[in-house]
Structures are given as C-alpha cells and as structure tokens.
Design a protein around this nucleic acid. Structure first.
Length: 639
DNA sequence: AAAAAAC
C-alpha cells in the first residue's frame, strides 16, 4: 500500500541522480565516469575489479576507455601469461579492453534524447501492482524498491538509465538482492516481466567487483568465461546477448554469444579476444568445449533461462554434460540461477541437482499468464482453420491496422504507446500477429497460403537456415511482414514489441507451452490478445486450459467448460500442481520431500488473491493456510 | 508425435 509512494520517491530520486550527473555538457565526461563521487563509490575502492577511473580516460575524451586492468584474470588466457603475450597479438593483448565497443544505445554524440520522446521501451508499472510473491528458502534477502537501493556500480547504473529503466520490476526487486547475496535461485516470473535484466545486472556487477587475483592455468586458445548463460533457442541467446551488451557497455565486462547455424569462425575470434559472460545454446557450447576452445573452470555464475525447457527430456543430457561432466565448479563454488515463467515440479526436482541451498521465488499469477492478455478460445474444426484465420485477419485489418482488435463490446487498444510515438513511427509500428502451428511443414504451408491470399507473412522454424530465421524475425519486428507463422522455436523468451495478437492455430499439447506462447504478447505491462483454435484434437489440454483461463480472470466459453467437465481423464500430466501461482516450491510439497538433503527454511506469500477458484480438486493448497503467514526474517514487498 | 539444439 505504501508501494506507490516509495516507487514515486524512487523515480524522482533516480531522475535527480541522472540529471545531476549528466548535466554538464561543456566538458565531456564519459558516461561511466559520471555520477562518480569519491566517497560513495565503492567500486572505485576495489583494487582491480572494475573500470579504472584514473587510467580509463586520462584525457577525459576517450569514449572507448574503460578497460579492465586485470586482463589476465579471465577470458582469454594468453599463452605467455605476460603483458601482451597472447598468441592472438593483433591488438597487443594488453589493450583488449580498449577494443572498439559499439555503442548499443546509438547515442554516440551523447546528447540526451529530445524531451517528449516516447519511452517505448518502458514498462507499465501500474500493471504490476498487487502481484503475488512467494519466496522460500533460508534467510531470504528482502527485496529492494529502487535501483538506487542497490550498489550495482556507476557504469551499470548509467546503462540502466540509458535503457530508461526507472524502477525495478517485481522480479528484479526480489532477484537482484538474492543474487547479490551470492545465493542460488530458482525464479518463476511471468512472461515479459524483466527476467533477463534480473540475472544480467547482478552478474555484470559481480564480475566488475570480482577479485582479480585468481590465477588461470595456461591454456592457449581456451576461453575461460566467468559467467555462462544458457538458453534453448538461437534467437533467444542472440536476444540475451544484445541485452547484456547494453547493460555491460563500458563496464569492461565482455559479453560473447555462441550458437549453431552461424559460422563458428567469428565466434571463435570473439572468444579469443576474451570473454567474461558467455551466452550460448547447448549444442554449440558442447562443440566448443570438446574442441577445448572454451573451459568452464572459471565459471562463477551459471544462469539457465527458460530453465524448465533446458531440463526437459530433449535438453537434459546436454545440460548435464555441460554443468556436471565438464570442468565447471560444483554447486556451492558457483552461483546458479534458474529462470522461467513455468516450473513443473518434476523439473524442479531435476533442477535441484544443480543448486545449493537455493531460494525459490515466484512472482506473478497463474503460470505467469497475466491478465493483461485477453484470452479467447474458439471452436474451429481442423478443416476450417485457414478460413477462420483469414476471417480474423480481415477483421483486424478492417478495424484499422494500427492495433485495434475488436473484442465484442469493448475495443482493446493493443498499441498502448501509439499516442506517444511520432507520426513517422506510427506508420511502421503496426500491430503484429504471431501465429503458432504444430509442425515445420505446417508453418511453411500456412505461410504460403497466407501470402497467396494477400497477407504478408513469413515463417520461422528449425528447418530454415539461420539466415532465413533471422531475416524472418527482423522482417516481422520491423512490420515489413506483420504476420509471422512459427513453431515452438518462437514460443519462449523472444521479446517482440508490438505483437498485438497471438493465434494458436494449432494448440500445443502442454499447458506450459501455451503460457509461453501467449506470453509473446502483453509484455512489459502492455495488453494483448491471444486467440486459440480448439477442437477435439486438443482434448488433453482442455482441463488445464479452462483452469488457467479462470485463474487469469478470463471468460471461459460455456462449451469449453462443458467439454472440460466431461473430459474423462481427470489428472494427467497436464494437471498443474494445484496452486494459483505459476510456480510453487516443490520442497514444500510433502510428496517430494525425502530425507534431509534439501534445505528449506520456510515460505512466505503475499499478494492479493481471493477465494480459491477453479481448482476444486486441486492440490489441497487453498485450505492449508499458507496465505498471509510469514516466516521469520522475511517481509513481503506487497504488504 | 513434434520441436529444439553441432558439424
């Protein structure tokens, strides 16, 4: 209840800080040196960790400054171990920190954006009020309210400001202090709520202030990153890399990405030039490990994005190999953070192998599907799907291509920021429609059919070349091709602004996949629409779907409820654990607790949820009196 | 049964 006040305070505090530091234009001060006051800068006091304020910009004019002076500590290990002694001596080795670092913000002239400029990357924070939060584990560090409450370091703070992140999102408020405290973490937070930054900030900050003294063994041509971030698709790794580069700009922390389908030579070159944070997909990383071009022995941070996917049947062996069978330090000697919007209990149990005395955190409602997404289910026979899709697209077009989707009586304006965009931008930022299908062949044929019928569509799936995939995504994002037909390759993590409508042309078999798919819209507090085509082929999903919709306060069609009621298989693997949260710590479930191996220090919940709804036969959760009980030493952010 | 992920 005091949240609004404290957030408002923090906003003005952040704005003052930003204005105070960047105000003087007469003398150029590199961004990473602004806001630096000798007394308050703990990073400057560290011996060798972060950028060196003295050497970084002796003339005050070198914007490529900000090198690390501990080049030998991490990343590429030069053959001779001496100054400039790397085999890759093109740049003299010693000055790799001075390599040209492309400005990811594109504001090289360092002028502030014109006032009145839209904040189209901003998060709609009002949408995140009353979000329930659950934590469990030993000694959970309390959440912070502002970025200023956390000492992330000046360079990182400057990048946060340039990203226009004024306030931390709920998952960031909870995650960052946990992570800075060095704790392992399993975090479950709704789609589009800022998870990437939540694990990137502490990693970058931790590397900046890390001790430099660690001696790395001699391993020519072997890169030794300090942090590893794994994700299940190439595009997602690429996206995380782009984000991380922004956050790490001029911090001296080097971020490199490696994934398949792209020439390995360039990735090798990047690795040779030094890497602190490696973002990768599993296959290419295993390749690099087997070639001994990467060693994991220096890993201090391991983050798995979409962690439940990374640990499901298809990926688990590769992940085990990377995490357990190569040279990565074991749990306890590294910090491990797992993130996803969904976390089935079976996967949680698998995941606990990788964790040490971890904290479980759940932020958000119902498997992370937010009520910002309007979910519709329509009964459509298999043979009618194409014409039905056509009807939807025509209706959308007729309603104005700029993001208004007719929703019965009320119009849902799906392009929230449109009013603030300059006219020239509005033209290009039309509402985008993402259509999910089951198979790669199905994607190709639907794309062809749409194009033949005058709808500009493209497609992304695993049978296309990486070039084609990336081109399709770009073309979709730009609005050039406002319809994208996709397989599950695009279901998770991709942050595509202006996706107004997600169509589940073919529903997935797993409710968690549905949650991730519809999460491509309604991001960053904006609203969105998700339409599903349902028929008898989807009966395995009907129960969990109707339950999910009820919990997200969605209108469940009567026919769907009837269908769900008569569906004979009551439980099945699609049943959720019976909680109203997307995640619940499996350690709190008695059927999972065996022996004393797990550390579990109690649980805490808070948030505005009412009477149990929809989970009549659920997991015996509502009755057990968790709500409102607070464990020792932990306070909720929402009370 | 499908999708993803290395060459």
């Amino acid at each position: 209840m005091s949240m609004r006040t404290s957030w408002a305070d923090s906003v003005s505090a952040a704005e003052n800080a930003a204005a105070g530091g960047g105000g003087n234009r007469s003398t150029y001060v590199p961004p990473h040196l602004r806001n630096r006051s000798a007394s308050s800068d703990s990073l400057a006091a560290l011996p060798q960790g972060g950028p060196d304020p003295v050497n970084a910009a002796p003339t005050g004019g070198n914007r490529w400054a900000g090198p690390r002076n501990d080049y030998n500590r991490s990343g590429y290990i030069g053959g001779s171990g001496g100054r400039g002694g790397g085999w890759n001596n093109r740049n003299g080795g010693w000055d790799r920190g001075r390599d040209r670092e492309v400005n990811p913000f594109g504001d090289d002239d360092n002028t502030e954006q014109a006032s009145g400029e839209p904040e189209n990357t901003g998060i709609n924070f009002d949408a995140y009020e009353d979000i329930p939060v659950e934590t469990s584990g030993d000694n959970v560090p309390p959440p912070v309210n502002t970025f200023a409450d956390i000492d992330l370091g000046d360079a990182l703070n400057e990048n946060i400001r340039r990203c226009k992140y004024v306030r931390p999102t709920p998952v960031q408020r909870h995650t960052i202090p946990i992570s800075l405290a060095g704790r392992d973490l399993m975090a479950c937070a709704q789609t589009g709520s800022g998870k990437t930054a939540a694990f990137c900030f502490p990693i970058i900050s931790g590397i900046m202030r890390g001790q430099s003294a660690q001696r790395a063994p001699r391993m020519p041509r072997t890169a030794c990153p300090l942090a590893l971030i794994l994700s299940p698709t190439r595009e997602l790794s690429s996206q995380i890399h782009d984000e991380a580069k922004k956050f790490a700009y001029q911090t001296g922390v080097k971020v490199v990405v490696a994934y398949g389908g792209a020439p390995i030579s360039q990735q090798l070159r990047e690795l040779e030039r030094g890497v602190d944070i490696l973002v990768a997909t599993p296959g290419r990383l295993v390749d690099l490990l087997e070639r001994a071009r990467v060693s994991l022995q220096m890993i201090r941070y391991l983050a798995l994005d979409e962690a439940d996917r990374m640990l499901d049947m298809g990926f688990e062996p590769q992940i085990r190999k990377i995490v357990q069978q190569m040279d990565m330090p074991p749990p306890g000697l590294r910090q491990t953070m797992l993130f996803s919007a969904t976390f089935p209990k079976e996967i949680q149990r698998l995941a606990s192998d990788f964790l040490s005395n971890y904290i479980f955190l759940a932020v958000g409602r119902v498997g992370s599907s937010t009520d910002l997404i309007v979910q519709r289910v329509e009964y459509v026979h298999e043979t009618d799907k194409r014409s039905h899709l056509m009807d939807l697209l025509h209706a959308q077009k007729a309603n104005g291509s700029h993001g208004k989707v007719k929703l019965g009586a009320s119009d849902l304006c799906v392009n929230v920021n449109m009013a603030f965009l300059s006219p020239s931008l509005v033209v290009n930022k039309q509402a985008l429609t993402l259509v999910f299908v089951e198979t790669k062949k199905g994607a190709d044929s639907l794309e062809y059919w749409l194009c033949s019928n005058g709808f500009p569509a493209t497609t992304i799936h695993g049978d296309r070349t990486q070039q084609e995939r990336e081109y399709a995504l770009r073309s979709f994002k730009s609005g050039n091709t406002p319809i994208l037909v996709a397989t599950d390759v695009a279901a998770r993590g991709l942050d595509i602004p202006h996706v107004a409508h997600v169509v589940n042309f073919d529903l997935p078999n797993d409710i968690d996949d549905y949650v991730h798919r519809i999460g491509r819209t309604g991001r960053a507090g904006k609203s969105g629409l998700a339409t599903a085509f349902f028929n008898e082929n989807n009966s395995s999903l009907v129960r969990s779907l109707s339950e999910l919709m009820q919990e997200a306060n969605q209108e469940v069609p009567a026919w769907l409820s009837r269908f769900a009621a008569k569906a004979s298989y009551g439980g099945g693997k699609n049943r959720r654990g019976g909680g109203r949260f997307g995640g619940r710590d499996f350690r709190r479930d008695s059927s999972f607790s065996r022996g004393g191996a797990d550390h579990y220090g109690g649980g805490n919940m808070s948030g505005g949820y009412g009477a149990t709804s929809g989970y009549g036969a659920g997991g015996g959760y509502g009755a057990s009196g968790y709500g409102g009980s607070y464990g020792p030493g932990v306070t909720s952010a929402w009370d």
